[in-house]
């Protein structure tokens, strides 16, 4: 693979990633009552932290001021990295703001939101 090929592939992949990250048409189909199943104390903790720190820009995990979270296949490590680095206009959350356990709890909750959205879509499709 020559250098030009690598540059083109990287540029194309970045464009796709930007589309995934920012695509406003890709946010959650709202389904009232489609709440995530929170069966552990850590998930409830993550829910409370999410509501204090994240929900303002990503309401219910969907898009708002910021992009949607619940339509992206980002692994937990990527979510945690975003929380710590604050890309673009997103604020950066330091260890003074959120402990490592807090970030873990939030990432688990975000995944639960994503799963709840998938379940709701399947139920809606089945009707």
């Amino acid at each position: 693979m020559n250098k030009m090929h690598i540059v083109l592939v990287a540029a194309g992949a970045t464009a796709v990633a930007l589309g995934v990250a920012c695509g406003s048409q890709q946010s959650s189909p709202p389904v009232a009552g489609a709440e995530p199943k929170l069966d552990t104390a850590e998930l409830k903790h993550g829910e409370a932290l999410f509501m204090r720190n994240c929900n303002q820009c990503h309401p219910g995990g969907a898009g708002g001021l910021g992009p949607a979270l619940n339509n992206k296949p980002a692994p937990k490590g990527a979510i945690a990295l975003v929380i710590r680095t604050g890309p673009g206009q997103m604020p950066r959350f330091s260890h003074d703001d959120l402990s490592a356990d807090d970030v873990d709890a939030i990432t688990d909750y975000v995944v639960a939101l994503r799963n709840a959205k998938s379940d709701a879509e399947e139920m809606a499709a089945a009707k």
Partner: peptide
């Protein structure tokens, strides 16, 4: 999926959707 997730992160870090 993981690659796309990290590229998404990279893309966001490079510009920010609002921009």
């Amino acid at each position: 999926a993981k690659l796309l997730g990290y590229l998404t992160l990279f893309a966001l870090g490079g510009a920010g959707c609002l921009a």
